[in-house]
Amino acid sequence: MNRKDWLLFLGVGLFIGVFPLVVLQFKAVSHYVDVMIFAGIFSLVCLGLSMLMGFAGQISMAQAAFFGIGAYASGILTSRFGLNPWAAMPVGVALSASVAWLIGIPTLRLKGHYLAMATLGFGVIVHIILGEEVEWTGGPSGLVDIPGLSLFGRPVTNDVHWYYLVWGIVFLALVFCLHVIHSRVGRALRAIHEEETAAEAMGVPTARFKLQVFVLSAVFAAVAGSLYTHYVTCLNPGSFNLMWSIRFLLMVMVGGMRSLWGAIMGTVLLTFVGNEWLQVFADFEVLIYGAILLVVAMFFPGGLVSLVPRWPGPRKDPIPAASDGGS
């Protein structure tokens, strides 16, 4: 992590840290804590997607499906088989990772947008299965009686505790991703995005790296899905359809394709827009998202993160580390 990352870390960390303390003072906005829990959960999905799309340049239309696999694996295993949520989560993660691996092997060997096509089909299939396999998933009427999470033997019931748990995990994931980006692996991913043939010719096993980052994105989505399940304690296939995959893509794009910080900012903004501020316009949601994307593309192509002011003071160390690309 470089200087800019540390400063963002401080700023964003402080904001996230005091957010509940502030909004809980005002009754009208106290439910923002709940919205921010969803934003945190979605941020996990979008961090993975940012690595995949923003850095490696591969588009997935199935992040909601991986989110759903993690969610339903957790939901079914805990509600029907009495498994502990913390034991169910890795099962969902492993399932999601294996499926991503199977889809990625044939599609990522090729250059071009075959992954987008394959994941588009896959996302639709998962959504149908979730709706049709009534015996397992509860079908359209949903899966209920899912237990909440316990931490250190105590159930997490308070929203504020949930908030800090979710955002704690988001920050761990973010640090992991920042470290990857500022390293040999991150350079390989960016190189694949820019000049895939040259990357291969410089010794980067491009197919393997694309596959690995795709699996990573599926893992993040599944962890998020599992958290989501135990937070809302009931599931409905509607939360895992193509529209949600597109929302995740939009969150990353609006925040800034080439910045992990941007992915989080975009997610928080669009979660508030979707869950809160524009509820009355729900019928026009697609239209509004389209308009937001258009405005971002036209006026700040670097995404929201490009609006973060440049920090004054000496910026250049003699050999600066790789930038996160978000400036």
């Binding site: 990857v180 991150g186 960016r190 000049e195 990357a199 410089m202 010794g203 980067v204 980052v213």
Partner: peptide
């Protein structure tokens, strides 16, 4: 790799002589 720095372009090319993967770097 046009948006990478000159140094990063050369660092990328050290790839076949180095090893760290996702877990080691993350």
């Amino acid at each position: 790799f046009k948006s990478m720095t000159v140094l990063e372009n050369v660092m990328l090319a050290r790839h076949p002589r180095t090893h760290s993967g996702f877990l080691a770097t993350g």
